[in-house]
Design a protein around this nucleic acid. Structure first.
Lengths: 221, 221
DNA sequence: CGGAAATTTGACCAATTGATCAAGAATTTT
DNA sequence: AAAATTCTTGATCAATTGGTCAAATTTCCG
């Protein structure tokens, strides 16, 4: 039953565990990039093993199935996203909170586009591997944030808009720079945006959303 | 060389051609849905044939390779999209033109989400089957529309914004309702949005974008 | 050291899958 | 009618691929 080798053997947590953690990380990073490029179906364990520079059989020693590997990649992505909107609280100023959220999301799209693409791919295909996450955890998260935004509206701090669809719009407008980067690059005619361009994008998206909500964008940093 | 059976034989364009067109359409629709659900790699010609209700060997009679089938699906999608922004012209009013464009895109997301997902999937994976379309045709399209928007700005009709990133934002905010429908459904807790909800979405996205551009949303229809 | 546990690895397997082929059925043309 | 062309389809193939296995090799610990 216990298919986790080295589990709970009291070996002192020495070199083995450190090495194990590091090789698992290498495998997960390789898997991430392959899943992002080819999707779950197109990804092959052989290619993941190649990028992790280990034999395929060794990969299956650390992760029993491709499914298990994919799950861990997804889990990692989700946990990264859970706390990007911490500033969206009832006692915060909407303009500042939304501005920070949008900026953080654009930065994430720049710094970690690959996990974002794995997740987007999963959603596009109907989220067959995500189980109930969307309709439980994420839904609760959105409900909570929507409540905060509604409190801002009730306090007369911003225009009356549908909070959930505002969130969808922010997600879409920011993650498009990770998920659809190849399209944006091709259309703009360059390999990738410069950090300055990302800043300009964050500023423009923020301005449009905030003005659209009847808010005044904060002065630029 | 000519692997198109029945091509140019002067048979009068009778039953054969009509039947051929209809079966090809059935195959393409089946392919569309399978590609949308599983991506290029995950799609199997067997499943496409099953949905088209023909033997797999017969499918390969009409479309030699899976790649050819995919190309035709993509081509169909692209041609559908080429003329959705015809109202974005220099002599149009920005508020009206953008409003119509956004509304049309949301309607397309509602009516034809499947082709949109096939395309989105292709982009996410780096557009390996799209050839130079993005960097030639689509880029030229965007350049032209950006020029129009810049003329509106120069005429003092709207706030100074980056036209291309505005277009990206409109694409993202509208297509998210096709591409990420499973996420939106799960978060909102219902199978699919009602036509009324789509209308409300179009209204809200339009309002936010227009106000964000310093425009006044037109009165609702 | 020396036995036990953990790790590595090449060889291998069963299932899937894109594509082919040949034989026959249906349709059109002469 | 019969020859020619188009269409249909079951059988089959070669390649790919997720996963297994057992035999080494290494590491750990008394």
């Amino acid at each position: 039953m216990n298919d986790q080798p080295n589990a709970d053997l009291g070996n002192g947590g020495g070199v083995r565990q450190r090495s194990r953690a590091s090789i698992e990380k290498r495998i997960l990073e390789a898997a991430e990039s392959v899943f992002a490029e080819a999707g779950f179906n197109g990804a092959t364990t052989a290619e993941i093993a190649r990028r992790a520079a280990i034999p395929k059989a060794n990969l299956h020693y650390y992760f029993n199935t491709k499914e298990e590997l994919y799950q861990q990649v997804l889990t990692g992505i989700i946990s990264t996203w859970l706390h990007t909107a911490d500033e969206i609280r009832a006692d915060a100023e909407p303009a500042s909170a939304l501005s920070h959220y949008i900026t953080a999301k654009i930065e994430l799209a720049r710094e970690q586009p690959i996990p974002s693409r794995v997740f987007a791919n999963e959603i596009i295909h109907g989220a067959p591997h995500l189980g109930k996450y969307l309709s439980t955890e994420l839904r609760a998260w959105v409900d909570a944030k929507a409540k905060v935004i509604r409190s801002w509206i009730a306090a007369g701090k911003m225009r009356e808009i549908d909070p959930k669809h505002l969130l969808f719009m922010i997600w879409a407008s920011t993650q498009t720079y990770a998920d659809f980067a190849s399209q944006i690059s091709a259309v703009l005619g360059r390999d990738q945006l410069t950090p300055q361009e990302y800043k300009a994008v964050a500023r423009q998206v923020t301005e449009i959303i905030l003005r659209g909500c009847g808010l005044t964008p904060p002065a630029q940093v």
